[in-house]
């Protein structure tokens, strides 16, 4: 079971707007799925190590190298411009983000 308050809290964490009607439906549907999931409690997992993937690979990381070559840099600028074209709003080669801090006028 999940409460109405919890649904609202989770929607906030997940950055989803829900109308009151949608929230009510969500409460009912999530509760029914969570009830089903509760059957996991039937299994004793005290000494079991959890797994998050199955290949057993560990931390595949690339070398931390600087791209100095002109061709590489040129290629990266090309890719950057291509990706920027997909953004709803850009300015001077950057993504434009909505305001976070309120603009205030300086006091002198």
């Amino acid at each position: 079971m999940i409460s109405k308050k919890e649904v609202q809290h989770i929607a906030k964490l997940a950055r989803l707007s829900l109308t009151p009607k949608e929230a009510k439906k969500m409460e009912k549907e999530l509760s029914s799925v969570l009830d089903y999931i509760d059957k996991l409690k039937e299994i004793n997992t005290d000494d079991i190590q959890p797994i998050s993937q199955i290949t057993g690979l560990k931390n595949v990381i690339r070398n931390d190298e600087k791209y100095e070559k002109y061709e590489v840099k040129k290629e990266r600028i090309k890719i950057r411009n291509k990706l920027l074209k997909l953004a709803p709003e850009t300015k001077d080669g950057y993504l434009k983000v909505k305001s976070i801090i309120k603009k205030t006028t300086k006091n002198k």
Partner: peptide, 17 residues
């Protein structure tokens, strides 16, 4: 006051719809 949209409200609306 500054005719801009709040960042977090943009998330809620974009993802909700």
């Amino acid at each position: 006051s500054n005719k801009t949209q709040n960042l977090i409200d943009g998330y809620f609306k974009t993802r909700g719809e």
